[in-house]
């Protein structure tokens, strides 16, 4: 059994829980024996964690199996196939009559009282006009969408030649600046240019013209030019999501300002 198989088993357990399919489709005993057999072979922490997760999911399946048996022995149990067949055979009127005959509607009334009307009037009087209230709901600063080059060209954000020129400019900029902190490289004086630069930089990395060096412990990301073009194709290819936001850009700007002020103070002395 490989870790992949454990993940598949977890997914299978989750599907049974989510969709309510027969929990006896899973041979719990067989999987427990297999897990026991392989337990000694797991060496990495991740494998052991997966093993524990499988055990947890299997216990949920056993619980579902208990419920399944209880349901089947209850007066509610009817063979689903028989029920499906019967439902398909019945006319809409017969189905509706069956519901009406087993229906005990809630008795509830809505009535406005003078006090409630007064509350409504007070609320109306205190309410600001809609045009003024709009300011309370600022437009969200984050958008989760994927844009291809074609989309940007369609949106007139870029033209094809402009795109290639921009890539060249960024590539040259990176070569001049050398290894540099990723945010220092892409962030510029305005947010829009920064996002555009981040987008173009992702192409540099994808094409193997730049390299990302990520230090997860320090939460640092460095970018450096790739002088050996073939290097990008030899290693493991993976996607690296980097979150950029207006707030993050503002923090970066403040930091830059502080650095500049500190530099000026030092020179002044």
């Amino acid at each position: 059994m490989k870790p992949d198989e454990l993940s598949r088993l977890i997914n299978f357990c989750k599907t049974i829980q989510k969709e309510g399919t027969d929990p006896f489709d899973l041979d719990v005993k067989k999987f427990l024996e297999t897990l026991k057999q392989y337990l000694k072979k797991w060496k990495h922490l991740d494998d052991l964690l997966l093993d524990a997760e499988v055990l947890s999911e299997l216990t949920k399946i056993i619980k579902l199996q208990g419920k399944w048996i209880r349901d089947r022995s209850s007066s509610f149990y009817i063979d689903p196939v028989l029920m499906e067949l019967k439902l398909k055979m019945l006319e809409p009127v017969q189905l509706a009559n069956a519901l009406f005959k087993s229906w005990h509607p809630i008795i509830s009334m809505d009535r406005l009282t003078p006090r409630r009307l007064k509350e409504g009037l007070d609320y109306w009087n205190a309410l600001l006009p809609f045009s003024e209230r709009k300011e309370e709901f600022p437009v969200a600063s984050t958008l989760e969408i994927t844009l291809s080059i074609e989309d940007l060209i369609d949106l007139n954000v870029l033209s094809e030649t402009e795109f290639e020129d921009s890539i060249k400019i960024i590539s040259k900029d990176l070569e001049e600046r050398g290894r540099i902190e990723y945010r220092d490289f892409i962030y510029e004086d305005d947010f829009e240019s920064s996002i555009k630069k981040a987008y173009l930089t992702s192409y540099l990395v994808s094409e193997g013209k730049a390299e990302l060096d990520i230090n997860p412990l320090e939460e640092e990301i460095f970018i450096s030019p790739c002088y050996i073009k073939t290097k990008a194709n030899t290693g493991e290819v993976r996607s690296v999501p980097i979150s950029l936001s207006y707030e993050d850009w503002m923090r970066w700007k403040r930091k830059q300002k502080q650095k500049r002020n500190y530099g000026q103070e030092q020179r002044g002395r």
């Binding site: 509610f76 029920m83 019967k86 439902l87 009559n97 069956a98 087993s102």
Partner: peptide
């Protein structure tokens, strides 16, 4: 709250 489920199933099966 409103539907007698047992009765509904019985009525459908016996219809």
């Amino acid at each position: 709250a409103e539907v007698d489920r047992k009765s509904l199933l019985d009525l459908i099966l016996s219809a």
